[in-house]
Design a protein around this nucleic acid. Structure first.
Length: 1049
RNA sequence: GGGCCCGUGGCUCAGGCGGUAGAGCGCACGGCUGAUAACCGUGAGGUCCUGGGUUCGAAUCCCAGCGGGCCCA
């Protein structure tokens, strides 16, 4: 047999396992890379997934996009760099490990287990997950350099990171500063903006009365500034109140008390009370007024400070009172104001979010827990004007989901604000897909960028390579291990770059003192931000860098706007004055069927493994690339996955159809010369179609419009290949021996399938490999050993767009015939005498002539007649009563009777020629003008019709003896085929047939005995009473008969 | 408050450089039976979110609004 045995039905579990084992054993991936060694370089950088657990659907989608595009690029001849990357440091892993070890705080890490063990556990955890996730990616058929990935805890990688920091220092972009930053009290560390998630949160909403110290002329003693806040715990740190200098502020008398607030807010706050505005002043006029801190009894330290009203341009009137509580230790704006006016940066909160001793009564309390006590105390002092709650957006630590707080701390920063303009001009050089991802969304993020807090007070990360001298404040930024050895004059061994070992390395300072490393580690976003050169181990290694940097392509989800797209841009500008990537595809998120985020708490998570177990990796891959535009969010939908599975089933069936028949006939695609093979028009058509599809797919893949590539292929496989071409060649495959006509069909089907598996290989690598291994390679053994080693080719010369258009017309016509027959209840199996194709469009008539053979067979007709009009249409002529009634009166019935005998065609001709038509009655001639008649067309008996775009088909359904004879024969064939199947005979088996029927039926089928024998593979057909063989009773129309068959030996 | 994206049959989505609205699923009806634990056809079902504008013509371009999502403040 020419082709190898294949599974009868599409079984992804088996074929995918087989394909992956084959690739593994034959090192196909490595071969595909080697194959393109001399091709043009195409560099890709894998956005490193974080190794904290199993992959989810979004991660799968991400890698599938990458794999598909890169497989395509490789087939198209490029030498593609596709190293896998892993993000392995940072808080998320620390959290998981803390959980595993039952640790609850930094203190416990340091005292119970020690940094050394903790870091080791983190490393083990990351490596274990890296292994699990690698297996999962491989299961999806993702080809990358899994054996030589970059991973962020690799010392060589870390050195590149250190070098980057050193560059920042050289450019004066690395600074330490006291600033108010976002802080996670759970993780006890600074967070960057990128590490904060925003969600709705319910908080207190209180209006607090701040008592003015001096009594204003004309006002009562009880005068208060009214202030609104949602963070009562920041009140202990209040140092000032800001008002906008240009706004109007009102003194409002309510009962015995007077309140000061923005006039615009008065109504919304006092609306329901009786109040009186007694004076209105500009904000600038109340600057400098002193007030009493409302909690000075609880917080004695506050008595040492002076509290005044300050001007603030940041004050708005959208909410609150227009008088803004200002705590320089707890808010970025507040901090700026504090610095500008020399306020103390009072921050009575420690790193765990607990009030320090300065907070007096609240000492030791967690800030959020102190809210109710503070509110109660305010109330006790009579300083609480109003209390409620508010639901608003609030920031949370992206990993532990603790609400963040603002704290004033000393941190290290990258001064992004200083290079912002360079970042903006650099991002314009990048090609973004879709274009708005860069031009609008990313640009907006960068425009709002602030200085980047890069220090983290944690353990598992790249240590900040900054050594400082406690004696003279000198700092040194170390750019490599070698440099550290040199500077420290120590022999350094082991994992010396990680904590805690690196913490012990001291550098002698020129002042005679000792420099010690700053104990922080780096924000993990720096880890991945430097991937561009760190993955190439630059600057330690030069060659790789020169070959591959910068990267031609990266792709990640839209969350990476603030993440990796940004961190790479920032780090790239600092280290190398350039953005590391040239083209970016920003893809979407995977959501559940309702469009909600997949999350464990909602229980709506769909695991990629689950989909693969049910439908296989190819179906999942194709689905994810098909479901919508890649840059939009994808609502995962099981029904649609099932639908894609159906398409794979059909492709599989076509393959089985091809391999079954080609196998039976021992078909050899290379054996036959041109004289032995006859191609029909449909062969040329499908050959052209497949090239058109190749062109579309190429264009779509290049543009990263992956949904269009998958849709083109799906459409081709279902509509053109399965539903049309296979249907057209059915009859030809049934011919025996090496008939040229059959070989033409085989040859064409074979090359078409070969093209299909080539085009689909990047999208669905497993099924394509399977078909290639079982159908293509056995017949063309000189071909490369894997479909993935083929070249990507499009052959323009095989395209015939006119033919493709004609075929579309033919399909429309055939559909219309089927409709027409259906409406007349005339079976498709029964032939018809003639169909007339009527159209005024010459192109359509030509098409029907060009494809006459296809039409004859598929419309099951003896004759095709293209025509500009349907000659046999009867035209009935009726009198128009509106005009004739008044004119002819009692003559109308006689005229009507005459008209009913008139041939409409004749009347129309006369009218066209002479303008009138004369009806001769016995006594008088009546002249009729066009207005006087109404024409109605009528189909002749035995004709049924249906429209198609651009025309009409008329089907002659008259049953002549010949037609009936053929119809009965076909009916008989179907019964016998049915019985063959009952006996479960081999396709090629021959049978003997015996028909016991009336003489009349025998007479009908007799002229078609040869046809019947051929169709059912009968060696003989007898008409006699049944013996003991397998037989069955049938009723065909009015004929009752018994058919018996047996396997002929 | 700002930026971006999305809004097309019951559902999931194509189309989207302006020219009669498409597919699959689901539903109803029918057909086919050597690709067959398949497959095919027909039908019903749409104010293309709303309102303006540009235009001979708008699902498509522009403006405003409404609704949903993401990001930021």
């Amino acid at each position: 047999m020419a082709t190898e045995e294949a599974q009868r039905s599409y079984n992804p579990q088996i074929i995918e396992k087989r394909a992956q084992e084959f690739w593994e054993a034959r090192k196909t991936y490595q071969m595909s890379q080697k194959n393109r060694e001399d091709g043009p370089r195409y560099s890709f950088l894998d956005g490193p997934p974080y190794c904290s657990g199993r992959i989810h659907l979004g991660t799968a989608w991400n890698k599938i996009i990458k794999d598909t595009y890169l497989r395509y690029k490789t087939m198209a001849g490029c030498n593609v760099r596709r190293q896998a990357g892993w993000d392995a440091h940072g808080l998320p892993i620390e959290h998981k490990v803390e959980g595993l070890l039952g640790l609850k705080s930094k203190k416990e890490i340091e005292t119970k287990i020690g940094i050394e063990n903790f870091v080791e556990k983190c490393r083990e955890f990351a490596i274990e997950n890296q292994g699990i996730m690698t297996q999962q990616f491989k299961m999806l058929g993702v080809w990358m350099d899994w054996d030589q990935p970059y991973i962020t805890f690799d010392p060589k990688y870390m050195e590149s990171c250190w070098w980057t920091l050193k560059r920042a220092h050289e450019k004066d972009l690395l600074v330490q500063d006291l600033r108010v930053i976002t802080w996670c009290p759970r993780c006890e560390t600074a967070l960057a903006l990128a590490e904060i998630d925003y969600e709705d949160k319910e908080d207190p909403s209180i209006y607090v009365k701040f008592s003015l110290k001096e009594v204003q002329p004309g006002l009562s003693e009880n005068t208060y500034i009214l202030v609104w806040t949602t963070t009562p715990w920041t009140l202990p740190a209040n140092m000032a109140i800001c008002v906008h200098p240009d706004y109007d502020y009102a003194y409002v008398k309510v009962g015995e008390e007077t309140y000061l607030l923005a006039e615009a807010m008065v109504d919304s706050i006092f609306g329901e009370l009786e109040y009186e505005i007694i004076r209105v002043v500009k904000g600038s006029q109340i600057e400098g007024l002193e007030y009493q801190h409302p909690l000075s009894q609880e917080i004695p330290v506050q008595n040492d400070f002076k509290h005044v009203i300050l001007p603030g341009e940041h004050v708005t009137l959208t909410e609150g009172t227009g008088c803004v509580h200002t705590a320089p230790g707890h808010g970025p704006d507040d901090f700026e104001i504090g610095k500008a006016y020399g306020l103390p940066i009072f921050c009575p909160v420690d790193e765990a979010g607990l009030f320090k001793e300065e907070a007096g009564k609240y000492h030791g309390q967690f800030v959020k827990d102190a809210d109710p006590y503070i509110i109660t105390d305010l109330d006790t002092h009579g300083l609480l004007f109003k209390e409620g709650t508010i639901k608003h957006r609030y920031g949370f630590c992206w990993r532990c989901k603790t609400p963040i707080i603002y704290l004033a701390t000393e941190q290290w920063f990258l001064k992004i604000t200083q290079i912002k303009n360079q970042l903006l001009s650099e991002l314009d050089k990048v090609e973004w897909v879709p274009s708005w991802a860069g031009e609008s969304r990313f640009r907006n993020w960068v425009e709002n960028a602030r200085d980047w807090t890069i220090s983290r007070q944690r353990y598992w990360g790249i240590p900040i390579p900054i050594w400082t001298c406690s004696d003279c404040d000198e700092i040194t930024v170390v750019g490599s291990l070698e440099e550290l050895v040199q500077l420290s004059q120590e022999k350094l061994e082991g994992d010396v770059l990680h904590r805690p070992y690196v913490d012990q390395v001291k550098i002698p300072c020129h002042c005679g003192g000792q420099m010690q490393r700053t104990p922080d580690v780096l924000d993990v976003w720096i880890d991945s931000g430097v991937a561009g050169w760190a993955a190439l181990y630059y600057p330690k290694e030069q060659k790789l860098f020169e070959e591959w940097y910068p990267y031609d392509f990266i792709t990640e989800g839209h969350d990476q706007t603030r993440g990796w797209f940004y961190s790479q841009l920032g780090c790239g500008m600092i280290a190398l004055d350039s953005v590391p990537y040239r083209k970016v595809l920003m893809h979407g998120f995977t959501l559940d069927e309702e469009g909600k985020k997949m999350s464990k708490s909602l229980g709506n998570v769909v695991e990629p493994d689950e989909v693969v177990a049910k439908y296989g990796a190819d179906v999942l891959r194709f689905y994810l690339l098909w479901a919508n535009k890649p840059w939009e969010d994808l609502k995962f939908n099981w029904d649609e996955v099932k639908n894609i599975n159906k398409m794979f089933n059909i492709l599989w069936n076509v393959f089985i159809f091809a391999s079954t028949y080609m196998g039976l006939d021992n078909f050899q695609p290379t054996k036959y010369g041109a004289e032995n093979v006859k191609f029909r028009v449909e062969d040329r058509w499908i050959t052209s179609r497949v090239q058109s599809v190749a062109q579309e797919v190429t264009k779509s893949l290049e543009a990263l419009h992956l949904h269009q590539a998958t849709r083109s292929l799906q459409d081709f496989i279902l509509e053109d290949l399965s539903r049309w071409y296979v249907r057209l060649i059915r009859g030809r495959t049934w011919i025996e021996k090496d008939d040229p006509d059959k070989l033409g069909a085989y040859q064409t089907l074979y090359t078409t399938l070969k093209s299909v598996v080539t085009l689909m290989a990047p999208l669905s690598p497993h099924i394509c490999e399977e078909i290639y291994q079982h159908l293509i390679r056995p017949l063309e053994t000189y071909l490369p050993e894997s479909v993935h080693l083929l070249d990507w080719e499009v052959d323009e010369t095989l395209r015939d767009q006119k033919l493709e258009a004609d075929m579309n017309v033919a399909r429309d016509i055939i559909e219309a015939c089927a409709r027409a027959r259906d409406s007349a209840r005339y079976k498709l199996r029964w032939p018809v005498q003639e169909i007339v194709i009527v159209s005024e469009d010459q192109g359509i008539l030509e098409a029907s002539q060009n494809l006459e053979d296809v039409l004859l067979e598929q419309a099951n007709t003896k004759k095709i007649t293209p025509s500009q009009e349907f000659q046999d249409l009867k035209i009935r002529v009726l009198p128009n009563m509106k005009t004739l009634g008044p004119r002819l009166r009692e003559d109308v019935p006689r005229v009507a009777a005459k008209l009913s005998e008139v041939d409409g065609h004749e009347l129309m001709e006369k009218m066209d020629a002479e303008g009138i038509f004369v009806v001769k009655l016995d006594d008088v001639n009546v002249e009729l003008r066009p207005d006087d008649v109404v024409l109605e067309t009528e189909l002749p008996d035995n004709v049924t019709n249906s429209e198609f775009p651009g025309g009409n088909v008329f089907v002659d359904t008259q049953i002549t003896p010949e037609i009936l004879s053929e119809a009965m024969s076909r009916e008989l064939v179907r019964r016998i085929q049915d019985m063959r199947k009952d006996l479960d005979l081999e396709v090629e088996a021959h049978i003997q047939v015996n028909v016991d029927c009336s003489a009349e039926f025998q007479g009908l089928v007799k002229p078609f005995l040869e046809y019947i024998s051929h169709e059912v593979r009968a060696t003989e057909i007898l008409f006699q009473a049944q013996d003991g063989d397998y037989h069955k009773k049938w009723k065909i129309e009015d004929h009752e008969l018994t058919v018996g068959i047996k396997h002929s030996v």
